[in-house]
């Protein structure tokens, strides 16, 4: 083929693929909104705040962004909203070891950001992020450990290296807090013993569950 021939192949071939891309884009645009909940005014304002504070400069969302901080696609599915709001306003007060700085987010702003994060968590992402396939299958546990498991305390707490980092490590909690009465009150209404606590209240536990859980916590010396 002459140089002119290859040149034309380059130009018209590329245009051909670009036209296909435009077609697919057009089709995708007509489907995106059906794969997610409706965008309310609050969600939109939350998105604008997301941009204002440049959250993407540290976090990923839908897996895109920066890799300095956890992905926020499923945040509201994993953490209670009350906790997230407090965290956004002042991460270091909620979690003294937090790396996220205090950005000056107000409570109203936190409300909107959470609405946005909640919207994101409901987008149909073709199954991403996937469930961890190699995660240890939780063994059937008895007593307080089972209650701990049932209420997913490990989303925020760590025991023996397993669990989340949003709340304090509980591996030796009984050495710090040996008083069963304290734990009982704390679990039912954390703010009654720890002013302004960001831990969600577990007032819906049955009396028996509460007893077992407190007994379990006291074994963690």
């Amino acid at each position: 083929m002459s140089n002119k021939g290859v040149r034309n192949l380059f130009i018209f071939g590329s245009l051909f693929f670009f036209v296909i891309l435009l077609g697919l884009t057009f089709d995708t645009m007509s489907r995106i909104d059906k794969r997610a909940p409706e965008i309310t005014e609050e969600v939109d304002q939350g998105k604008r705040l997301w941009h204002k504070y440049d959250c993407i400069g540290c976090h990923t969302i839908l897996g895109n962004g920066s890799y300095f901080a956890p992905d926020l696609t499923k945040t509201t599915a994993n953490k209670p909203v009350s906790y997230i709001k407090k965290f956004l306003v002042n991460p270091r007060k909620v979690n003294p070891r937090a790396s996220m700085p205090v950005l000056g987010i107000t409570e109203e702003e936190a409300e909107k950001i959470v609405a946005f994060l909640d919207w994101i968590s409901k987008v149909d992402t073709n199954g991403w992020p996937p469930e961890p396939v190699l995660a240890a299958v939780p063994q059937a546990m008895a007593g307080g450990a089972a209650v701990y498991q049932k209420y997913d305390c490990s989303a925020c707490h760590m025991i023996g290296g397993v669990g989340g980092t949003s709340g304090p490590d509980l591996t030796h909690v009984a050495s710090r807090q040996p008083d069963p009465e304290w734990h009982r009150r704390h679990l039912v209404d954390p703010a009654s013993v720890v002013p302004d606590s960001a831990m969600p209240p577990f007032a819906h536990l049955s009396e028996e569950e509460l007893n077992q859980l407190v007994d379990y916590l006291l074994t963690l010396k």
């Binding site: 995708t28 995106i32 794969r35 839908l62 895109n64 073709n126 992020p129």
Partner: peptide
């Protein structure tokens, strides 16, 4: 880039 972001 369109596998997991809410696209078909």
């Amino acid at each position: 880039h369109y596998y997991w972001i809410g696209t078909p």
